[in-house]
Design a protein around this nucleic acid. Structure first.
Lengths: 229, 229
DNA sequence: TCTCTTTGCGTCATTTTAACGTGAAGTAAA
DNA sequence: TTTACTTCACGTTAAAATGACGCAAAGAGA
């Protein structure tokens, strides 16, 4: 009998869907590949799992070396197993998605990529591998998660106005939400804490600045979106 | 440079949390191992992913050869990567959960197991590997999913009464739900279709039999559970 | 016929939601 | 200073959903 690790195993990759929000636009970070397969094509950043590494370890390594960022919100998405998803052979991909505030990082292309760029999620180029599929699933997860779980603040500055949070929700959910009802729900749920500070330098009334309430009890709010049917 | 598949990769296993419902009890199928590691211990049924296999392919193979069942509801749960989760070495596990109607299958222990048995989810023995952890996550998923998505009927006969469905929900969610409000919600959401038939041979009033409405539009109902806090 | 249990339908007070009104705060131009 | 304009913060109201019950019909057995 062969010893345990001498059987041939599929390779294991981690692929990242990195979301960023800026200028009222939700974007995804894509990387232009320098090598085959999919040379000169846009793909999600990713990398192979090292023998001693955890998934989050691989995520951090990718984020640091390929994109120059660290300490971000990460969540496992799904594992993808289509036998033909990688032309090099059998590669299983574990998808993760990250939420980052682009203002905090200066994205750099590691030496493995021609280029790294933010793309509006509504205007994506063709993607290599099955990355369009992974991306779509990540976007769907983000959309459903933000409706009942406070992830929005990961994409904003530490201090933000209710209006900014409202715009974020409208942008991600691609819908309109009544401004006044939104404010009431967010405040009733104690999603945010009023800092007493105000955002200065705007041409109209200066709105109050809030911070995320870290003591928020989970599932305490529910933003509804009109169902299309 | 080494060719692509000569790098050493972690092994990839698929582990199954098979739920069954019978006699007002939610159970999980466990397997008593015949070999090391965890010889004579209870574990989730599982198996290694073959090079050409999909996850669902592995699931079917396990269900058929180890348990003698096929054609069941399966959903991917999560992938588990703790470096020490398997004493034989680095093994990544992809967790799936299955919902089956025990009345439809006669569970058999394949030749790899001492025994296969249903265990009440509230009275589980110690489990090998990190299988307790996988199980807990599966139970949590089932509980949250059943509140907004029609999965309950996978565990029942094709024809069932509202009372039977109600008991299933109370059993899985470990709570009491008002019988009359439950009925109203299920009917308003068009979760089920009245067949006009009645369940005969009961000692009291003969309830109407329903079947699941396969045209149900998703997210059309929401069973609430009192939040403990 | 009477009793007992389950089933199916209904009522009602309370809470939640969606839709929208309005005055205060602030800037800029008259 | 006054006026005009915009955004912000807080209300109001009608409709819908929810939770907590009431009750009579159906069926079995005494």
């Amino acid at each position: 009998m062969k010893s345990f690790h001498e059987y041939k195993n599929p390779s294991l990759a981690v692929d990242l869907v990195v979301f960023g929000y800026h200028d009222n636009t939700l974007s995804v970070l894509l990387l232009n590949r320098k090598e085959e397969p999919f040379k000169d094509c846009w793909t999600l950043p990713g990398g192979f799992l090292q023998m001693e590494e955890t998934f989050l370890g691989t995520c951090s390594r990718i984020l640091q070396t390929k994109l120059g960022m660290d300490q971000v919100f990460l969540e496992q998405l799904y594992s993808f197993d289509a036998p033909d998803r990688d032309p090099r052979g059998r590669v299983i991909a574990v998808g993760y998605y990250a939420l980052i505030n682009p203002a905090k990082f200066n994205v750099v292309a590691g030496n493995m990529a021609n280029d790294v760029k933010w793309f509006n999620v509504r205007k994506l180029p063709a993607l290599g591998f099955d990355h369009k599929h992974i991306f779509k699933q990540a976007l769907q997860r983000l959309r459903s998660k933000i409706q009942y779980y406070p992830v929005g603040f990961e994409l904003l500055d530490e201090l933000f106005t209710i209006t900014e949070l409202h715009e974020l929700y409208e942008c991600i959910l691609e819908t309109t939400i009544d401004r006044r009802n939104f404010r009431r729900k967010i405040l009733d749920a104690a999603y945010v804490i009023n800092t007493g500070l105000k955002r200065e330098g705007l041409k109209n009334r200066h709105p109050e600045l809030y911070r995320f309430n870290k003591q928020l009890k989970k599932n305490s709010f529910q933003i509804n979106v009109p169902t299309e049917s």
